[in-house]
Simulated scan of single mutants.
Amino acid sequence: MRLVQMTSLAALLAGAALPASADDAASCETVRYSGPGWTDIAATNGVAAVLFEALGYTPDIATLSVPVGYEALKNGQTDMFLGNWLPAQQKFRDDLDANGGIEELVQNLEGAKFTLAVNKPGAEAGVADFADLDAHKDAFDGKIYGIEPGAPANQSIQAMIEADDFGLGDWTLVESGEQAMLAQVGRNESAGTPSVFLAWAPHPMNEAIDITYLSGGDAQFGPDFGGATVHTLARREWVESCPNAARLLRQLTFDVPMENALMGDILNDGMDPAEAASAWIAEHPERLEAWLDGVTTLDGKPGIEAVKEVVQQ
């Protein structure tokens, strides 16, 4: 009887010494997600990549336009998405919700905004509201600078032009990427030329450019200057198969000052998003407690210790 008790105790002690399983299937090792080429999503994707890599996962990040990225998530070509901006991307979200295969894991950012704005020459011309623009069409060369083709915000601008809202029916939407748009606005700023363009926060453009966000665009971009929240979405099947990775994402939230700093490192200092994220995490290790609560490495070791070891090297 004593031998049986000792054997049982030894077995229990041996079991206690083994690491806990992450409860994620082998197929979870590669985490597939996308970004539309926006620096804010590149920054948050970089944070996720650093954490996933330290935990033993392999992040696979594709650059896809907003419509293509949502189709990829819907069709199972990607697993999750950190950049569901609402209300700007509501129609894509409605489509995913109707499909039933996607769930929201967390609202990862609040305090964002997204609407049209003018540079300092535009504000000095007297433009502070959407309704002020058309009276100054010649000064703006009748152009509204947008981001990449297919982006929901561009679609809102084009719909506004087609409906002749605010008398803008004879204006032109200039579509380009985020960096090309900001480069054009910067050139106009240097030349003293007014510009109207898509602007948003978080983004270091708010410090680099003297921006005036325009009032009056509630119908197009929502109240409070396009006040927005950003949400993390994932495939239900992936969440069920990969609960440890999904737990990390449920707890991974950001704030505007953090994203401003990361985006500044990427845009102004030329840092890779993951490099910028790793440096930021090393300077703010206190954030790891909430992000990694109950999260393990893929092979079941304590997650927070693994991440600290990587980012503090």
Rank of each mutant, 00 (worst) to 15 (best):
A128I: 06
F130M: 15
D132V: 07
D132I: 07
D132S: 02
D132R: 00
H136A: 09
H136E: 09
K137A: 13
D138Y: 01
A139G: 00
A139E: 12
F140V: 00
D141P: 05
D141M: 11
D141S: 14
G142S: 06
K143I: 08
Y145M: 06
I147E: 12
I147N: 10
E148A: 15
E148K: 15
P149I: 07
P149F: 05
G150L: 02
G150C: 06
P152T: 15
A153K: 01
A153H: 10
Q155D: 11
Q155M: 06
Q155I: 06
I157E: 03
I157Y: 05
A159I: 10
M160Y: 05
M160Q: 11
M160A: 13
E162Q: 08
E162W: 04
E162K: 11
E162P: 01
D164A: 08
D164I: 10
D164H: 06
D164W: 09
F166S: 02
W171S: 08
T172P: 05
L173S: 03
L173C: 05
G177T: 15
E178P: 09
Q179W: 03
M181S: 14
M181H: 12
L182C: 05
Q184E: 14
Q184R: 13
V185N: 06
G186R: 04
R187V: 12
A191V: 07
T193D: 11
A199L: 09
W200D: 12
A201G: 13
A201F: 04
A201P: 00
P202W: 02
H203I: 04
P204H: 01
P204L: 06
N206W: 10
N206F: 10
N206A: 14
E207S: 14
E207I: 08
E207K: 15
A208I: 13
A208V: 12
I209R: 09
D210A: 15
I211N: 07
Y213G: 04
L214G: 13
L214P: 02
L214F: 08
G216E: 01
G217R: 05
G217K: 06
A219Y: 00
A219G: 08
A219R: 13
Q220H: 08
F221N: 07
G222P: 02
F225Q: 15
G226V: 05
A228M: 10
A228G: 04
A228E: 11
